[in-house]
Structures are given as structure tokens and as C-alpha cells.
Amino acid sequence: MKTFVVAAAIAALAVPAVAQEFDGQLKARQGQFRILAINLGILGDMAKGETEYDAEAAQASADSIHAVSMINQGPLWPEGSSEADLDGTRAKVEIWENFDDFASKWSDLSAPATNLQEVAATGQEALGPALGQLGNACSACHDEYRASAN
């Protein structure tokens, strides 16, 4: 009986992996964007004055954002994992047509992320401009390589 339950559980777990290729890669790349968004939310709420500025928390968020910017993207974007190939992704096929440019746009995150890390603990008023620079780097890539949501 026990064996049967375990086997059924494993079978149930295995189903999504069979249903779609590159499931792990999709989860990994979307997870890193989620980590960015959560930390941008913490910093953004402080910049807006919706939560009280907390230098330590701001630094921790900036450190996390910087850490994500250091993740090597190559293994997360295998050929055949675009929106044309798979459900649940907005990655445009152009990524693989211009992979060097795509990779360099990711590297462009590094400078504003480093700057954010340097200024995050210096005061609430430093956050807005630093986040603006980071937002530019996000937009530069989304603009060319992410399909619209609708």
C-alpha cells in the first residue's frame, strides 16, 4: 500500500515534466525575475514613502538584486524555449537570433545594480534615481525580447 502511494506520488510529480520540455529552465529564469520584482517592491515602497525607510532592509534588497544580476544566463535559455515553442513564456524568438545582444543587455544590469548596492543604505532619497537607472536596463531588454502580455 505504502509503495503504491509513493509510486502514485512520483507519477503525479512526473506529469508536468513530461508535459513540457525545459520546465526547469523556465522556472529558474522566471524565478530570478520574481526575486528581482519582490526586492524592487521593497525598495520601491520605501522610495514612494509607502513604507518607512530602513537602511538595513534596503541594503539587503539591493544585495539580492545585485546577486541576481550576477547569475550566468546561458544555461537558462536553451534553443527551443521561446514563446513560439512553449506555453507559459513571453521570451521572443529574437533572443536566439541575437543571443549576443540579449546577453549584453543582461550584463547591462550589472552597473545600475552595483550603483544601487552602493547607495541603498545612504538614504531614502537616493533610491528613486538608482531604481530609475535599473528600470532603464530592464526596459531595454523587455522592449526587444519580451512579448506583450495581451
Binding site: 524592487l40 528613486g128 530592464c138
Partner: peptide, 10 residues
């Protein structure tokens, strides 16, 4: 100012 929407999309 930053290009971030309220749900921190860009």
C-alpha cells in the same frame, strides 16, 4: 520616474 509599474514590472 523609474519605469516600474505598481507590481514592479518594467
Amino acid at each position: 520616474e523609474t519605469g516600474f509599474t505598481p507590481d514592479y514590472d518594467s
